[in-house]
Design a binder for these strands. Structure first.
Lengths: 177, 177
DNA sequence: GATGAATTTCTGTTAATACTGAAATCTCAG
DNA sequence: CTGAGATTTCAGTATTAACAGAAATTCATC
């Protein structure tokens, strides 16, 4: 891959900025953006050059992205260096990201809420607080149960479903009588 | 409101931690958690005491939360100080948060992607990059169009819908013939 | 198993963000 | 108007997270 075009640079910078707003390291997001745009797997050195950050920083970011499961290590014929490529399927990519954030952040929160509600007897949990936590817990359980099911739908089904939007309501009414 | 129980403290700390992971200031999230748990509106001074942070920090956080639209200023009879209360309806609260994040972060990104695709003629946008950006753009347009519609549904409709989960698929098939 | 390239880990530095306390401003009763 | 309480702004400080460069390790080849 040769030097980045201004459009590619703009995209990568924006993506990095977006990352920081959602609690993702800027460089990690930039590396991901670069690999997403790259037609071929890139070696770490090239990422270093293209983004202008330290080699070690790239190494850490790649580890992080592999941990998320949206970047993987591949080998290229005649080159003994590790190369890296991003998923290119956007739907799959976001599904994985959502799954991971659910697993890392939301599930532990749900667990905490559940534990709190259970401990209500022993520890002093007043009625008002219990109510608030109960409602938060219900919200999370309901939405996550839904997400877990929907995230398993094949992409074609999902897109067709999303495109229905409001229409789904009337179809549901019709479908039931 | 008297001193926080250990359960309340735990919840507030967890919520603050959760905030940082999603790009929200820890104190802002803590103030929000505290007000969410509070049966009555609280004056800034009391928040300061309960959370053990600087008065000015609370002031800034309250401004931020009001900007998001999930906390509002109210007055209490016989007390000239400003008091603050959080929304207590969880569904409404998350709807507002999602709306805001969409408005602040996702919409500008969509705009950027659209602009890039339009500029493809003038600036040098190679076919591969165009494809990648097109797919990202499509993903965002589809999912945001869906969200915009669904977020307007009354809560009762939304919860009933979510609880269907997978069932919605068979109902849709049935409904159409 | 020695050699050199590639990669990762680690530590100190830098940059960004959050926070405090003081000062300034606002508000309103008297 | 005046003054006390309440609130916000702001400049400096502290904390945290990100990063670079050096050192250590791994890996493949001979």
């Amino acid at each position: 891959m040769k030097a980045l075009t201004s459009i590619q640079q703009k995209f990568i910078l924006h993506w990095g900025e977006m990352g920081t707003r959602w609690g993702i390291n800027r460089t990690v997001a930039q590396v991901h953006a670069l690999l997403y745009l790259s037609p071929d797997p890139l070696p770490a050195d090239e990422i270093t050059t293209l983004l202008g950050v330290a080699r070690s920083n790239v190494s850490t970011s790649l580890k992080e992205l592999q941990g998320w499961g949206i970047v993987r290590l591949v080998h290229v014929m005649g080159d003994k260096r590790d190369h890296f490529e991003s998923l290119h399927d956007v739907w799959e990519m976001f599904r994985i990201i959502l799954d991971e954030r659910k697993r890392r952040e939301i599930d532990p929160t749900r667990e905490m809420l559940r534990a709190t509600l259970n401990a209500s007897a022993e520890e002093g949990l007043d009625e008002f607080t219990r109510m608030r936590i109960q409602e938060l817990s219900d919200f999370m359980e309901t939405s996550m149960a839904w997400y877990t099911q929907v995230s398993r739908w094949p992409q074609s089904v999902l897109t067709r479903f999303l495109r229905l939007g409001d229409q789904v309501l009337s179809l549901l009414k019709g479908g039931r009588g």
